[in-house]
Amino acid sequence: MALIETERLTRLYRLGAETVQALADVTLSIGEGEFVAVMGPSGSGKSTFMNVIGCLDRPTSGSYRLEGETVSALGGDALAAIRNRKMGFVFQQFHLLDRLDAFGNVELPLIYAGMDRARRGERAAAALRRVGLGERMHHRPTQLSGGQQQRVAIARAIVNGPKVLLADEPTGALDSRTSIEIMALFQQLNRDGTTVLVVTHEADVARYASRVIRFLDGRVQGDARQAPTDAAADLAALRRAPAPEPAGAAPCG
């Protein structure tokens, strides 16, 4: 049994009088522990795919099973619980709450899980240490660099021990070096057992994945496994190279 199984997954949008087919008959299976890059041009349906897999959106038809459970039949509260316990989201724009510090942002999913304060504190601190921000727990997002903000977002995504980490263009707002750092972090989390889905249109990002699924016009156009590039090795190479340090990308962790 695969972790994620979709069968003829279809998602239609009504745009005025027109009906747009964002997903058309997508039948896929993703196993536990995979590192998948979902690629495709704008409007190819890759983001819709991620939203449906992440239980933020529901398919118009077809079925989606997560760990054998038919998720497409569940109600709103059950989907919220799945998002809370089994999914972790990372977004291009980080989506951190500016009025909370890093710790407060990471704590958020645990609050909705109904966890008590003491346990929340331990879990949030552990997650922040895991992304290398143990020293910056009480910095606000505005006091952190872009890479650090994305690390806070990743800590928030993994704090509840999710099955699947879903990242939508996670490096889209970052410079190339920081991007590699973030990808190295994803690879690390993947090695520790989390299934990772990264939506991207950059080949540079996709090469760190072990499987690349390509979308075009809502359909799966290609699905190939590959030997992933080691992001940590790329970083080490960058450090050896005499290239100037990109601004705002201080290595942390």
Partner: peptide, 14 residues
């Protein structure tokens, strides 16, 4: 956006 994020990390509508 904050509401969207809260929903994404598991907030129920209520």
């Amino acid at each position: 956006r904050e509401i969207g994020l809260r929903l994404a990390v598991g907030a129920r509508r209520r």
